[in-house]
Simulated assay, not measured.
Amino acid sequence: MARRIPRLETIEAFIEAARAPNFRIAAERCAISPAAFSRRIQAFAAFAGCDLFERTAQGMRLTDSGRACLAALEPTYLEMRRAALEIGLAARPAKVSISLSHSLAVGWLIPRLDRLRARHPQIDVVIRTDRTAAAVRAGDADLGVCAQDVDVSDLVAEHFLDMHIFPVACPAVGETFRAGAGLERLRLLAVIQHPDVWEWWSREVGQPMPGLRAAQTFDILQAMYEASAAGHGVSAASHVTVQPHLASGRLVELGLPAARYPGCYRLAATARRLQSPPVRAVWTWMREEAAADPAPSPELRSAA
């Protein structure tokens, strides 16, 4: 009589136990109780006919026999899991929610959504405008884009985008600047989180102007850009969020250098949410989009 192989969930339990730092985490990854997980490990050990793990001062670790089993099974298991997840992803629509600031949503994400739909037509994106990581922690958002000052210590997080700052204005104000009006003679705008950005920018680009101050501040970048587009002053623009205004011609560059602002944006999620194929697909797509986003040169920029 042919010997029956273990059920797939029993093999999965062994592989997760071998990969996880402890059995409790491995049980969570399998979405079962520790007791049920232990029974699966015992069932696989009985099939293998040998001890797969040994207890040490640092916890459970694989025996030589366990390592041999893992080497034989893991590649095939991972390939089966990848194929099954791709089938599931293609078979049904999915929603992935992204938490990010209003300015990033309007200036960076929304203009790129057509490319996401072309890559993953089965995924619908839900946008939450929140610059904190609260929605990600609470499970109300699958992914978050967080500024450097946001605490992401308990999340999976990685560098996403740098921020480069340079002056922009509406075409009429741009003409005034090119006619000889210096920045100190123009009305300068900034966001309320960085009211000293103009003096900082002038130092960074090697043209220090002590006392250079914003005449008006805004709580979001997009409001500042709209004020500039209406002719109310020169904005300290972030290259990450200002591109739609430049592409439309409502704002133009002044031919001045860009400076990299301290800190960055980070992409964040919980480890559990990243196990979802649609969430992982959007995470990967966002990383690729960010990598393809060219940073401005610190040299003098071409004035429009």
Rank of each mutant, 00 (worst) to 15 (best):
R250G: 08
A179Y: 11
L100T: 04
R29W: 11
S99R: 09
E9D: 15
T56K: 10
V152D: 13
H232N: 04
S302L: 14
F47E: 01
C50T: 10
G182Y: 13
L85Q: 15
P75D: 14
A135R: 11
W285I: 09
E289K: 05
I123K: 03
S235A: 15
V252I: 02
G182H: 14
G59S: 08
F37I: 02
T63K: 03
L73R: 12
R301C: 04
L73K: 10
L113Q: 13
P75S: 10
G107T: 13
A229V: 02
I127E: 05
G233P: 01
L78A: 14
V96M: 05
R19M: 14
Q58K: 00
E253C: 07
I15E: 13
V106D: 07
A237F: 11
V125A: 11
W198A: 09
L70E: 08
A83I: 13
A18N: 09
A138E: 04
D151Q: 10
E184M: 05
A118H: 10
R137A: 03
Q216N: 00
L52V: 02
P262S: 13
E288R: 13
A268Y: 00
V150C: 13
F166W: 02
V279K: 07
M80P: 01
D64W: 07
R272T: 06
A230S: 07
A291R: 15
S297W: 01
L274P: 02
A215Y: 04
H194I: 09
E288G: 09
R3Y: 06
W200L: 11
R137F: 07
Y77Q: 04
F14H: 11
E74W: 04
W201L: 04
A247Y: 09
G182Q: 14
Q122W: 09
Q207I: 13
P75F: 14
A230I: 02
H239L: 06
S101I: 01
S297Y: 04
C30V: 12
M60E: 09
D140M: 02
I110M: 04
L109W: 07
